[in-house]
Simulated scan of single mutants.
Amino acid sequence: MKKILLSAVDVCKSFKIGKNHVDVLNNVSVDFYEGDFTIIMGASGAGKSTLLYALSGMDKISKGKVIYKEKEISSLSEKQIANLRSHDFGFVFQQTHLVSNLTLFENVAVAGYLGKERSTKETCTRTEELFKQMNVGNEKDRIPSEVSGGEAQRATVARAIINEPGIVFADEPTGALNKNNTQEVLNILSELNKSGQSIIMVTHDLRAALRGNRLLYLEDGKIVDEKEMPSYEQSDGKDREVQLNNWLASMKW
């Protein structure tokens, strides 16, 4: 039986625009399981990114609870949430948000210094290992503007996992990449998941969605359906694509 890692319980999120309140999330209740690669899909404006930010503590919810490892994180202070994000959560966004005047290596190592009590040597060793794993070691001493988008994004994945997070949250991580770089980043995420890394990813890209073993469909701030699939194997790509397309068609995606 799968272990519940993260839960949303009747989560609501609304924004005030002028005199009006706009409801973006409407009583969302869902569990996320250890070791899953969960994909969140839906039309533009459905609330996908808002849900991701609510789950990760990046955004305060209006009502409800978010529970991580049986601890309610939605009631934590800003300092406690920041500490949780640096230790237990990793983040990969469409834009890398790398510090522009630091090298790729320094960007990743700094996250390692801040997130775990490691010596300088331990942090550097861990960073070196990750750069080899991400196949970007030759570019480690370059600043972000000197490398390709794919290389920068792979360094971002390294930064996200340097502290061995319980969950990696990804928001359209391949949205700004070309086809080849998209495949490279997705392959890395798939390999991480195979090794046991739990991932929750928002995407509108079918190629990215194929990597998940569980898919949630969001509509008007509510989860209206979900689909379970076997863990991703490159050899089953065609059949997997047909299944996913049929499911999305049923959602009128």
Results as ranks from 00 to 15, higher is better:
Lys13Asp: 00
Gly42Asn: 04
Ser14Met: 11
Val28Ala: 03
Ser29His: 01
Gly35Glu: 06
His21Cys: 10
Ile17Met: 12
His21Asn: 14
Val28Cys: 00
Asp23Glu: 14
Gly42Val: 04
Lys16Gln: 14
Phe32His: 05
Val30Ala: 11
Asp31Leu: 07
Val30Glu: 15
Gly18Asn: 11
Met41Asp: 05
Glu34Thr: 13
Met41Gln: 06
Met41Gly: 05
Ala46Glu: 02
Lys19His: 14
Ile40Gly: 06
Gly42Leu: 09
Gly35Asn: 08
Ile39Val: 15
Val28Tyr: 00
Asn27Ile: 05
Ala46Met: 05
Ser14Gln: 12
Lys16Val: 14
Ser29Asn: 07
Asp23Thr: 13
Asp36Trp: 07
Lys13Met: 01
Asp23Trp: 00
Ala43Met: 09
Glu34Cys: 10
Lys13Arg: 14
Asp36Gly: 07
Met41Glu: 06
Phe32Val: 07
Ala43His: 09
Val30Asp: 05
Asp31Ile: 08
Ile17Val: 15
Lys16Arg: 15
Val24Ile: 14
Asp31Ser: 13
Phe15Arg: 01
Ile39Ala: 08
Gly42Asp: 09
Asp36Lys: 10
Asn26Ser: 13
Phe32Trp: 05
Ala43Gln: 12
Gly47Ser: 05
Asn26Arg: 15
Met41Tyr: 04
Asp36Met: 10
Ile17Lys: 12
Val28His: 03
Phe37Val: 10
Lys16Tyr: 01
Asn26Leu: 08
Asp23Asn: 12
Ile17Pro: 03
Asp36Asn: 15
Gly47Leu: 03
Met41Ile: 11
Ile17Asp: 10
Ser14Ala: 14
Tyr33Thr: 09
Ser29Val: 02
Tyr33Asn: 09
Lys19Val: 11
Phe32Arg: 03
His21Met: 15
Ser29Arg: 05
Tyr33His: 14
Ala46Phe: 07
